[in-house]
Each structure stands twice: as structure tokens, then as C-alpha cells.
């Protein structure tokens, strides 16, 4: 039942859209990592105000739908001038949304570093900065890698929602082609394979990073 003629005609458009999907995933994941790291650091070491700020950010982002966040970032903030830059708005919205989860992943990983190590480090006279740089963060990074990878595959799969603010990524391109050709199975199976391939690359990168950093594990 697979119509190869339709597929070969649709492939260039799906390919172009795949580039958008990959770029959006990378940009949003990067924002998520940076914001999540900052938010986790502020929450654990930023005093009561830092703690309150980070917790509020996390509960706001986790408590509202990504759909609403997309609209707010794209339409709701004209002074910042996001309007008209759909890709940037989408990367920011998805990245900020995911950043809340990244905060929690990193926070858990940091707290998982055994207290005894910190006490030992203090005993031998290491400064606070050195303890974080040399002992806590390297181990927390390794611990959090599998969960961060999972989070970024979720980011990959939330990119289709960006189509509501006019980012034509892979899934919406599929919808466009499908509504013209009436061949849903060909188009969406191809797109599913596309997502699997992108996710595979992401997961393999993460696995190899895990292997390289194994010696850092506690």
C-alpha cells in the first residue's frame, strides 16, 4: 500500500523540515541546560531568595502547558521583540519549559554526591569553589547524563507544537503533505523514522560521553 512516488516527491520537504526540527531541538536543549544549571545552582547555593526564585520558575514552567508558554513568549512580550521571530520564540519557550525539568535533574544529581566526600574535602582544606569544580559538578554531570538525554529526547518530541507559532517543522510538514496527498501512512511512517534517527544520534552521543566520563564516577 506504500506509494513510493508520493514519498519521493515528499522527501525533499520532509528533509528541509528535519533540519528545522534538529536545529530547534539543539537550540532548546542548550537553553534548557544553561537555564537548568543556573536555576539548580541558585536553588542550592543562592540563599532563600535564590531558592524561592528557582522553585517559582520550576513550578510555573511545570504547571502551565507548553502551548500557552509558546503563545506567551511569541505574542505576550512585545517589548522584548520576540514577535516575528518564530524560531527564536519557539527555542526560548521549549528551552525554558525543559529548563524546569533540567533544574530538577541537576539538583538531584548534585544532592546525590555523598556528603562524606564534601566533609573529607573540607577536612583537607579545599576551598568551596574547588569543591564544586573538582568534586561535586563532575560527578553530578556524569550522574545526570542518562536523565538529561531522556529530557532532550522529550524536547525533540515537543518541537511539533512550535507549528502553532508558524515554525514549519517535520510533523507539521507531514500534515501539510498528508492533507494534499491523502497518504497518511507513507508520510507519517517516514517522519517517525526521521524522529527515531535523530533520537538515535542523540542517544549514541550521550552513551559515548558516558563511556568517556566513566572514570569520573563515584
Amino acid at each position: 500500500m506504500v506509494d513510493l512516488a508520493i514519498l519521493s516527491q515528499a522527501l525533499p520537504a520532509i528533509g528541509t523540515a528535519a533540519v528545522v526540527t534538529v536545529a530547534l531541538t539543539l537550540a532548546a536543549s542548550l537553553i534548557s541546560l544553561v537555564v537548568g544549571a543556573l536555576s539548580a545552582a541558585v536553588q542550592l547555593g543562592g540563599g532563600p531568595i535564590g531558592y524561592a526564585l528557582s522553585r517559582t520558575y520550576v513550578s510555573l514552567m511545570r504547571g502551565t502547558p507548553l502551548f500557552v508558554q509558546l503563545l506567551v513568549v511569541y505574542y505576550g512580550l512585545p517589548p522584548i521583540g520576540i514577535r516575528g521571530q518564530a524560531f527564536l520564540a519557539a527555542a526560548l519557550a521549549i528551552g525554558l519549559n525543559s529548563g524546569a525539568y533540567t533544574t530538577e535533574i541537576l539538583r538531584a544529581a548534585i544532592l546525590a554526591v555523598p556528603r562524606g566526600q564534601l566533609e573529607a574535602a573540607t577536612t583537607i582544606g579545599l576551598t568551596w569553589g574547588k569543591i564544586w569544580r573538582r568534586i561535586v559538578l563532575p560527578q553530578a554531570f556524569v550522574t545526570s547524563l542518562p536523565m538529561l538525554t531522556a529530557e532532550f529526547t522529550i524536547v525533540l518530541k515537543s518541537t511539533p507544537l512550535a507549528s502553532v507559532i508558524a515554525v514549519t517543522e517535520m510533523t507539521y510538514t507531514g500534515v501539510l503533505i498528508q492533507s494534499r496527498t491523502y497518504s497518511a501512512s507513507e508520510v507519517f511512517l517516514t517522519i517517525a523514522v526521521g524522529y527515531i534517527l535523530i533520537a538515535q544520534v542523540l542517544m549514541r552521543l550521550s552513551r559515548s560521553l558516558e563511556r568517556r566520563t566513566r572514570r569520573l564516577r563515584f
Binding site: 502551548f67 505574542y75 507549528s163 502553532v164 508558524a166 514549519t168 501539510l176
Partner: peptide, 11 residues
């Protein structure tokens, strides 16, 4: 400006 329908009325 091509976008999914759920974004049309808000936009």
C-alpha cells in the same frame, strides 16, 4: 504565515 490551526485564532 503557515501555522497549525490551534495557533490561528490566538495569532
Amino acid at each position: 504565515q503557515v501555522m497549525a490551526f490551534s495557533g490561528i485564532i490566538p495569532g
